[in-house]
Amino acid sequence: MSTLAQSNVVSTILPFVAAMLIGLGIITLAGHVQAAALHDAAHDVRHATGFPCH
């Protein structure tokens, strides 16, 4: 019974956690990763959005 309740909680929360993680991944990739091509392409937006750049 408690395993069932537990799996219900997990499956209820899972979509929110998944969306949050994908969002965090996008922000990390577009805003923080320093690979040269990514940095140059996103340069102006990174500055304008206030991410630490360079």
């Binding site: 929110f16 949050m20 994908i22 969002g23 965090l24 991944g25 996008i26 922000i27 577009a30």
Partner: peptide, 17 residues
């Protein structure tokens, strides 16, 4: 392109909350 990408990322975090 990157502005759209970043705000989709923000959007996912905001809508999740």
């Amino acid at each position: 392109l990157f502005s759209a990408l970043i705000y989709v990322g923000y959007g996912l975090m905001l809508v999740a909350c």
